[in-house]
């Protein structure tokens, strides 16, 4: 799918909270084998952080890279499944904090871990149709895993945001995108429930793999490209294993995956996951590099993007912190502090 007007990424920003809990610490508390944990550690939001505060940091970093005024944004769209309010937009608070109000479209988007890439695709359409010069899409989460559940090892906090504008001003041009969705109940959270439920192994083959593979292949078919045409590829990363496996099935060699694979160090940031991986690649890419990116959200669906980096990346990259700098900014906490920060202890 291509818009009428060519568009691209004018600026991007990321944020990851500084606290980390090791997977071996979670295994210790629940008596699980520390040798069988899925990742090394995951990020934990501080007691005063939530999806709103993380999105504000992301938006401010994206504006620094884009070099535009907040009032130039005509959309502030937040994709998240951890809205602080059940009813009241996250996006209006973020838009107000970055001074993009009042003549701006603000909305919260929902599609499990795909909510962030959905906002980016909507921004492509908004700018590509000529309705807006700039639009900001953010994927952010402070993901909740039920205590002792398999997801508790990976459910993390963080996100990334992209300001979409004309391709002439872009640090990376978006060549095309494709969406692929079906009704697949692999993961859900009902109203008023604190924690999600999932279909265990059902989350693999008929869910993650089916959607990521079909969406990725559809985009490459549309463009007439194959894995050899890309320098980097990013796939939604609920753990370390799934994105490596799906890359292998699609024919992307491991060396094209590793720079965007950050879940082993920060966990699965849900709506932020694929978008953070993409930012991590943009942090090191050079003019002419071609990037393939596919998100995945339970319920279920994927969005695939084909992106080409321009020379403008060199001037803008250093205007905000890199993914690596946020990964390295870390303070390890034990399960007790983690339980307190995640409000598993009620006061």
């Amino acid at each position: 799918m291509k818009p009428n007007k060519s568009v691209g990424i004018v600026g991007y920003g990321v944020y990851i909270p500084k606290y980390r809990i090791q997977n071996t610490e979670i295994a210790r508390v629940w008596g699980n084998d520390p040798n069988l944990v899925p990742i090394r550690e995951k990020s934990v939001p501080g007691s005063d952080e939530d999806s709103v505060t993380i999105a504000i940091e992301i938006a401010r970093n994206a504006l620094k890279r884009a070099g535009i005024e907040p009032k130039d944004l005509k959309a502030v769209w937040i994709g998240t499944e951890s809205k602080p309010y059940a009813v009241k937009p996250t996006s209006t608070i973020v838009a107000e904090a970055i001074a993009a109000t009042p003549f701006v479209n603000a909305a919260d988007w929902e599609f499990a871990c795909k909510a962030g890439s959905e906002t980016v695709q909507a921004c492509i359409a908004y700018v590509g149709s000529g309705m807006a010069n700039y639009a900001l899409g953010i994927g952010v989460d402070t993901a909740q895993g039920s205590p002792s559940d398999a997801l508790e090892y990976t459910a993390a906090a963080g996100g990334a945001g992209y300001i979409i504008g004309s391709s002439k001003e872009s640090l990376a041009v978006i060549e095309s995108s494709v969406s692929y969705v079906t009704d697949t109940p692999d993961f859900w959270r009902r109203q008023h429930e604190h924690y999600p439920k999932h279909g265990n192994r059902f989350t693999g083959e008929p869910s993650y793999f089916k959607h990521v593979i079909n969406c990725s292949e559809a985009l490459m078919d549309e463009l007439g490209t194959n894995p050899e045409d890309y320098d980097y590829a990013i796939f939604h990363q609920p753990n370390r294993k799934f994105p490596l496996e799906v890359a292998k099935i699609l024919g992307f060699p491991k060396e094209k995956i590793m720079d965007g694979l950050i879940s082993p160090y920060i966990g699965n940031t849900y709506a932020g996951s694929a978008l953070l991986g993409l930012a991590s690649v943009l942090d090191i890419s050079k003019e002419g590099d071609r990037i393939f990116c596919t998100s995945y959200g339970s319920g279920a669906g994927s969005d695939s993007f084909s992106i080409e980096v321009t020379d403008k990346i060199n001037d803008r990259r250093a205007n905000a912190p890199s993914v690596k700098s946020y990964i390295e900014r870390r303070e390890e906490i034990d399960y007790a502090r983690y339980a307190r920060y995640r409000k598993k202890i009620r006061m």
Binding site: D283, I284, R317, A318, P321, S322, K324, S325, Y326, R329
Partner: peptide, 9 residues
């Protein structure tokens, strides 16, 4: 907060 220092790769 103390300023987040950052360097690019």
């Amino acid at each position: 907060r103390p300023i987040v220092k950052y360097a690019h790769p």
